[in-house]
């Protein structure tokens, strides 16, 4: 499994991504500076890390979405390659039009950092195949702009096509407004594109991959990706 972790000025979760992918999973993992125009040859997965790319200027992820490396990331996605964006990475994928919607300021206006529960809504994705639909994961969130929004008709479309990969819930898997920490529409924590190869989520599974981190539930996603790497689906 060859993984590229694009690094933008202001990325600050790139080392979390590199650690989870390179050290915990033992994958061939390469940081890629945003000024590069090509991903490493043979990249299977692009893991866009969290942070505050370009200081969140204009809108979160808006400037990073224009970076030179994004052209090759879009090509990679168009060719069926895997793209995984966490937190600011999710915001960048939305701004780059690789995923629908936008992440607004949290309803409470506060930066929220806490452990949350999310429910796996789709277990048939390369990112979730080692888990079960309805499974509850405990993972941390740390963001000020995670309030997912989409206009009403597009939201209906997203739900109808099964575009929601993860939803905020309580420990028993119950979803609802009270279980949604940031005001996100329909409690959405993560979404996937139509083809199922581009996933963005606000929670940080890469920060829940070793017992020392307080939990290992994030491994479900990485084990799913590992399974995909062992039996690659046609690109």
């Amino acid at each position: 499994m060859r993984v590229a972790v694009p690094v933008f000025p202001g990325s600050n979760c790139d080392h979390d991504a590199l650690h989870a992918s390179g050290v915990v999973m033992g994958w061939d993992t390469h940081p890629v500076w945003h000024q590069e125009t090509r991903l490493p040859e043979g990249t299977d997965l692009v893991f866009i890390p969290g942070g505050f790319s370009y200081g969140d200027y204009l809108r979160c992820g808006a400037i990073a979405a224009l970076s030179p490396i994004m052209g090759d990331i879009k090509r990679h996605a168009e060719n069926g390659g895997l793209v995984f964006g966490v937190c600011n990475g999710f915001q960048i994928l939305c701004e780059a039009n690789l995923l629908p919607g936008a992440l607004l300021r949290n309803e409470s206006l506060r930066f929220i950092h806490q452990q949350v529960h999310i429910r796996v809504e789709r277990a048939d994705l390369p990112f979730t195949s080692a888990m079960k639909a309805g499974q509850v994961m405990q993972v941390p969130i740390a963001h000020a702009e995670g309030n997912f929004t989409l206009d009403a008709s597009e939201l209906l479309d997203l739900e109808a096509r099964g575009g929601v990969a993860f939803r905020y819930c309580d420990a028993t898997g119950q979803v609802g407004e009270a279980q949604t920490p940031n005001g996100a529409a329909n409690g959405i924590a993560g979404i996937v594109n139509l083809r199922g190869n581009v996933l963005g989520m606000m929670p940080h599974p890469e920060r829940a991959v070793e017992p020392e981190m307080g939990g290992v539930d994030g491994l479900g996603i990485f084990r799913s990706l590992a399974r995909r790497a062992q039996c690659p689906v046609s690109k």
Binding site: S108, L109, N147, G183
Partner: peptide, 10 residues
């Protein structure tokens, strides 16, 4: 219109 503006509300 219709997009929540928590900053404006605050």
């Amino acid at each position: 219109a219709g997009i929540l503006d928590p900053q404006g509300k605050a």
